Simulated scan of single mutants.
Amino acid sequence: MYLITVFGNLLIILAISSDSHLHTPMYFFLSNLSFVDICFTSTTIPKMLWNIQTQSKVITYEGCITQIYFFLLFAALENFLLAVMAYDRFVAICRPLHYTVLMNPRLCGLLVLVSWMMSVLNSLLQSLMVLWLSFCMELEIPHFFCEINQVVWLSCSDTFLNDMVMNLAAGMLGGASLSGILYSYSKIVSSIQGISSARGKYKAFSTCASHLSVVSLFYCTVLGVYLSSAGTHSSQSSATASVMYTVVTPTLNPFIYSLRNKDIKRALKRIIRVPVM
């Protein structure tokens, strides 16, 4: 599944970069999302596979902090990019005549840059706060990677500030992105309902169907992790649920976008030299 994730997302990036017809804001954001998916899974899965192969479930303190930093970085980036892509679909469907003016290359680059900056600052702050904690003994983290909640919970220090920052970050960053996505799609649905022809409604909905599928998959699995861990208080159930959004979701994203998108399929056929009719 890890290899499928890496090669699938690399193919999406290659298809978009090699086809001039795909040099549009929507596919620019999609190529960034594919890159983030590769990095997101590469933060945790190679180490997990190495542990399975060597039968050694050991990670150094420095390696653990590094893993926390990059995991938070790419998880936040995924979150922001999904919100940016929802805004792009909102402008395309609700403001079609102004789309090329509003979604100009400068704004697209700025949106991605701001997403990177906010993600870096968030992960840097939370990782540095973990460094301030003291640990009483050799730890066993009941997870397949250094999940920040589990690490903070095992600390011997007062973790009030860490808990507050984690909750604020989840509420402000995750909540703001999800609210933006929900608002964008509420406007999109209203606009689609105003289209008179069934063909027009289908065409408008098809432009955002893939993104809506990815958004639903990502947020449902993330919420499932926290609801399952909160409901059962079982670290094993939390680790099992975490596999969904750290492995399964990034693996399915290339299939969702390629199978439902004629432009992507056409570009992929050109890459592998399949005749396009």
Rank of each mutant, 00 (worst) to 15 (best):
F28R: 01
S134M: 00
N253G: 08
L49V: 02
S119A: 00
I45H: 00
M244P: 01
L178C: 12
S184I: 01
M85G: 10
A83H: 12
F255V: 06
Y202A: 14
F145V: 00
S42D: 01
L124M: 04
S184W: 01
A86N: 11
S157L: 03
D263A: 11
P142H: 04
L14R: 15
T232L: 06
F144W: 13
P250C: 01
R199Y: 15
F218S: 06
L131G: 10
Y245E: 04
C220F: 01
L252V: 12
M48H: 07
Q55M: 10
M129H: 09
S42Q: 00
L30W: 05
C146E: 05
S20W: 06
H23C: 09
P275M: 00
V243Y: 07
Q55A: 04
A15C: 07
I52K: 11
V112G: 04
Y185T: 04
A230F: 13
T221H: 01
F40L: 00
F71Y: 12
H23I: 02
C39W: 03
F28N: 06
S191F: 01
L252I: 07
E62A: 15
Y69E: 13
A241G: 05
V58N: 13
T246I: 06
F80I: 14
I188D: 03
M48G: 01
V130L: 01
L107G: 14
P96C: 03
T54H: 09
C220I: 06
I16W: 10
S17A: 12
C220Q: 04
T249Q: 11
I148D: 03
G63Y: 07
L178M: 14
L110S: 02
K203A: 15
K187P: 06
T249M: 05
H21D: 13
V214Q: 08
L252C: 04
R260L: 05
M117I: 15
A76F: 08
N162F: 05
C108M: 03
G200H: 09
W116C: 10
A204G: 10
L113R: 08
C208A: 07
L72D: 11
N253S: 05
L121S: 09
E147I: 10
